[in-house]
């Protein structure tokens, strides 16, 4: 039996925020008409959270749903549950026009926590990270320096980041650099 490991095997770094690679996460790309009740039910059924509105993500522990575009959802769940979830989606959506693919091994997940988490993102992404503009629950696909990334914020103000696995090390180094002690800007936390 192969021993699956995530890109950086849960590497972590302690700067003015804590940067952690979150380990393996099950992810399913689900494309289809997000207005369709069947597709909504299939997604919420396997993820166990409510359907997120446009530009938002709902997540509980390892499971969640993220709104990627008007025809795409990202279903997150524990790594080991993906095959069962895909089978459940296939059964539920038989005859519908949709696409569901296991992308777990194509992604890396990071978590940054601490008071300066907003600032670390603001240094790397062209996104307004002020407390009025970016609220917990919002989900944003954007660019992190030179690579595509997506992130959302939990209620505890910790930021969860998804990138492609092939650039995991680049993203981790970016985050480490942005979180280096002494590099606080303090603009977002007056």
């Amino acid at each position: 039996m192969s021993d699956n490991v995530s890109a950086l095997d849960k590497a972590s770094y302690e700067g003015f925020v804590k940067v952690e690679e979150a380990g393996l996460r099950g992810m399913i790309t689900l494309r289809g008409d997000l207005g369709s009740v069947k597709i909504k039910n299939a997604a919420t059924g396997v993820a166990g959270v409510d359907m997120p509105e446009q530009g938002h993500a709902n997540s509980v522990e390892q499971s969640g749903l993220a709104w990627m575009s008007p025809d795409e959802l990202l279903v997150m769940l524990p790594y080991g549950d993906v095959n069962a979830a895909l089978a459940q989606i296939t059964k539920h959506l038989k005859g519908q026009h949709y696409l569901a693919v296991d992308v777990s091994d194509a992604r890396a997940v990071f978590r940054i926590s601490g008071a300066g988490a907003r600032e670390v993102i603001a240094k790397l992404c062209p996104v307004d990270m002020s407390q009025d503009a970016f609220k917990p629950g919002q989900f944003r696909r954007t660019r992190m320096a030179q690579v595509p990334a997506a992130f959302w914020m939990g209620e505890d103000e910790a930021v969860h980041i998804i990138s492609f696995r092939s650039v995991a090390e680049y993203v981790f180094n970016l985050l480490k650099n942005a979180a280096a002690p002494g590099s606080e800007v303090g603009y977002l936390n007056p």
């Binding site: 530009g55 575009s69 008007p70 062209p126 696909r141 954007t142």
Partner: peptide, 12 residues
Amino acid sequence: PVCGVTGEETEF
């Protein structure tokens, strides 16, 4: 106009 996100040109 599709996803409602406002961003600067390097995101596009």
